[in-house]
């Protein structure tokens, strides 16, 4: 529950600075405060309704917090439009898969390259020449993502027809295709079996290590969270009740009361 100022790596990549969010009279987030450092995996945990997804929505610009600042690489992004924030290098996946269902896997991933491409409506319609060269150049990037996530065999399949686990993977792929510097993952392993979870954890670690992306992760599987994350922030009823390394958080009595205790008790019963 220590706020590490200066002790850890020099400059935080993402600063959540006193963020409060109200929906009418309901307070979803109140004065949330923590930092995410470059190249780390930061987990956010907490019971249902704690405000985890609301926080991600604030970061990606879908919600606008009433108070506080969110700084990405030193720049306040509160009030920026979502597409503008995406261009800064922040990508995300959603809790309930939000893919473009009627498009192929390739088209979904190519949409991830949208911010890096230039061709407009005219060069797109004429196609041969500039637009085609651009398509090919970015297809190569997309193929690297396809290789990393091992989805070669489904690249021409329509996304809506794929099984759930693969859709989750494609959604991660679409975010990766953006070549983000910060990747927000909202329950990437929800509803998966243990084998699929292992795969997903491997992909997340690969992305973090090989591509150097900072990762903010919401996850309910404590085993996974404790294994792969560098730091863990704990939310309860919109308030930050702990922020530290997995070991620090695990032994924090407030956290055990609020969340882990109950979870562990249920585990033990099984």
């Amino acid at each position: 529950m220590t706020k590490s100022n200066g002790a850890s790596p020099p400059r935080p990549q993402l600063e959540i600075d006193g963020v409060s969010l109200d929906f009418g009279g309901v307070r979803a987030l109140s004065n949330v405060h923590f930092n995410v450092y470059p190249g780390t995996i930061q987990a956010i945990i907490g019971p249902n309704g704690a405000g985890k997804t609301s926080l991600l929505n604030c970061i990606s610009g879908l919600y606008r917090p009433q108070h506080g600042a969110i700084r990405f690489e030193g720049r306040n992004i509160v009030g920026m439009a979502p597409h503008h924030i995406a261009r800064l290098g922040i990508a995300r996946s959603f809790q309930n898969i939000e893919l473009f269902r009627h498009m192929t896997v390739l088209d979904n991933l190519m949409l991830g390259r949208h911010i890096h491409m230039r061709s407009g409506i005219l060069s797109g319609g004429i196609y041969w020449g500039r637009a085609q060269r651009e398509e090919i150049a970015h297809r190569e990037v997309v193929e690297r993502v396809i290789d990393l996530l091992e989805i070669q065999s489904i690249r021409k399949k329509v996304v809506g027809a794929l099984p759930y686990g693969l859709q989750k993977r494609v959604e991660l792929g679409r975010a990766l295709a953006m070549s983000p510097r910060l990747l927000l993952l909202d329950e990437p392993m929800a509803g998966m079996n243990s084998e699929e979870k292992e795969d997903m954890a491997r992909f997340i670690l690969d992305v973090n290590e090989e591509w150097g992306a900072t990762i903010v992760l919401i996850e309910h599987d404590m085993g996974v969270v404790m294994d792969i994350s560098d730091r863990v922030a704990v939310l309860e009823f919109g308030q930050l009740i702990a922020d530290g390394t997995p070991d620090e958080v695990r032994s924090d009595p407030k956290v055990i009361d609020a969340y882990l205790g109950r979870e562990h008790a249920i585990r033990q019963e099984r």
């Binding site: 439009a81 990508a91 949208h114 319609g125 637009a131």
Partner: peptide, 19 residues
Amino acid sequence: SRTGRAFVAIRDQDIAAQV
């Protein structure tokens, strides 16, 4: 190409398209 894909993205999932 890019623009047309963005159109279809808006149809399928406008929030994800923004993000």
